[in-house]
């Protein structure tokens, strides 16, 4: 405090008066946009390339890294097959709740098993036990599991992920990067024309989704 009473007050008023004439720090949004650093991450969204198609390569790295498990993927691949694992964006809310429950340590019914035909995991368990539940031998495990079922059911992948401790995204990523893995029973006609197959597959997927979510045919239109 200064010796003369009131001088501190006057000095403060002097400062505010100089600020009165200085250039302002705020901007007129949205006419002016903020100066954002190139590294700024901001909002999560999928990017499109110049042709208008998604840049996302479905590598699942984002889903793998997400700590609250809110990212997941589903959709068609280029051969008209669908590999939906958790469902469309509309059900993310439910997914998050389920994730929260799972993290709380309580047992949660895994909807993937109910939706995609649960299967008897004894054969899987034997294979996994033979490999000592080691995620580094994933390729061998997957090949042997395909040998048992003839294809890789989603339930089996889930089971492998849970037992080995590897992320489901990792297991799925491993499986999709090799051409000799199949995700449908061999009886399904995969040789149908691409567009036609896609429609059939989509209809099947939507029916499965509807029944799972009990939306009575109103979902995902």
């Amino acid at each position: 405090m200064s010796t003369v009473p009131g001088m501190g007050l006057l000095r403060g008023m002097g400062l505010t008066l100089t600020r009165f004439f200085q250039p302002k720090a705020t901007i007129k949004w949205p006419e002016q946009q903020a100066d954002v650093a190139p590294r700024f991450r901001g909002r999560l969204q999928l990017l499109y390339d110049e042709n208008g198609s998604l840049k996302c390569e479905t590598c699942f790295q984002c889903a793998q890294a997400c700590p609250v498990e809110c990212i997941d993927m589903g959709g068609m691949d280029t051969r008209g097959r669908f590999h939906v694992h958790w469902g469309p964006a509309e059900t993310y809310g439910e997914r998050r709740e389920e994730s929260a429950l799972r993290r709380s340590g309580r047992p949660v019914a895994d909807e993937a098993f109910t939706r995609f035909a649960a299967l008897d995991p004894t054969a899987d368990d034997e294979i996994l036990a033979a490999h000592d539940d080691d995620p580094r031998e994933m390729l061998a495990i997957l090949e042997e599991v395909q040998g048992v079922y003839g294809y890789l059911p989603v339930a089996a992948l889930k089971h492998i992920a849970r037992t080995t401790g590897a992320w489901y995204a990792t297991v799925y990523g491993t499986a999709t990067s090799y051409r000799h893995f199949r995700f449908e029973p061999p009886s399904v006609a995969t040789a149908a024309p691409a567009g036609q197959g896609q429609k059939v597959a989509e209809a099947g997927y939507l029916a499965a989704l509807d029944s799972a979510l009990r939306f009575d045919g109103k979902a995902a239109r």
């Binding site: 600020r19 302002k24 705020t26 007129k28």
Partner: peptide, 9 residues
């Protein structure tokens, strides 16, 4: 005036 003194618009 207060906005200007606070360096706001």
């Amino acid at each position: 005036v207060i906005a200007f003194m606070n360096l706001r618009i």
